[in-house]
Amino acid sequence: MRRIACIGKLSSANQTQLCEQVLDIFNQSRIFNSSKQIHGIFLVQEEIILQVFEGNQDNIGEAIYKARRDHQIEDLTIIANYSCAKPAFSSWNMRYIRPGGHTSQVHLERIKAELEPHLKSDQAAALTLFRRIFPAPATDTGTTAATHGTARLDQATVIATENTSLDAEQLRTQLLSIRAWPKASQVKLSSPVMKACALMSKGKISYQELQQRCLWATETELTHFLSQLNYIGILVLAPMAAVANDAGVANDADLATDAEQVPASQGDRFGMLMKKFLTNTRLRVS
């Protein structure tokens, strides 16, 4: 069995076109590779596209030939090509994964660890692209490869993958947000989960504020939930001091002001009645 990794760039710089392009390329690859029993990875970060193929060498060759002829991909270069005894990503088929998406940091670390020892040293430009996704170990300061990318984007940091379990002490100094909602298969969408995710998806919120909402009976349950999100790779933590002045931050003071200045509005009344309806309906259904 052969494992071949290619890296290239998407030809469009326009965000909407980029999105369509990625989905188009991915869909074509998925259909072709599935018919040829090729497994592997399809990873996109910004305009860089990395594909890892596992399977019969001739079939992979055909897949790469097709990809190279695709006008939507530029400079597709093989950066690793070696035999492997067994597939490392067999259960993934041709999954589309994206740093900053749902994919766990563990998966990204796994790709990096798998390819790193086999990288071809004579492909300087391609390796530069690879390093943009997976920074070299020497410059890696403890966070994961994908974390570097998202840290630049969000000006925030993510707790390292090796320790996804979080405690209250750590969390008290951080502002919390999520980069995606958890999938239904990852976390059960209970009422507290919905409320907490709604809060964190709208902006950054302090741990204390989240705690004050009393969504869970105990603090342990809250930290467990946040650890789960961290494990999935969707929790974003930003040190409080660094972003305290951001307009999007909901801190205790803002919330107190909101509560004082905005008495029961029409929106509140609607919300209250909707809550009552949902509670009653749930009781009736169960």
Partner: peptide
């Protein structure tokens, strides 16, 4: 849930 956090 999404609507009730909107005000913040």
């Amino acid at each position: 849930s999404l609507d009730s956090v909107g005000d913040i």
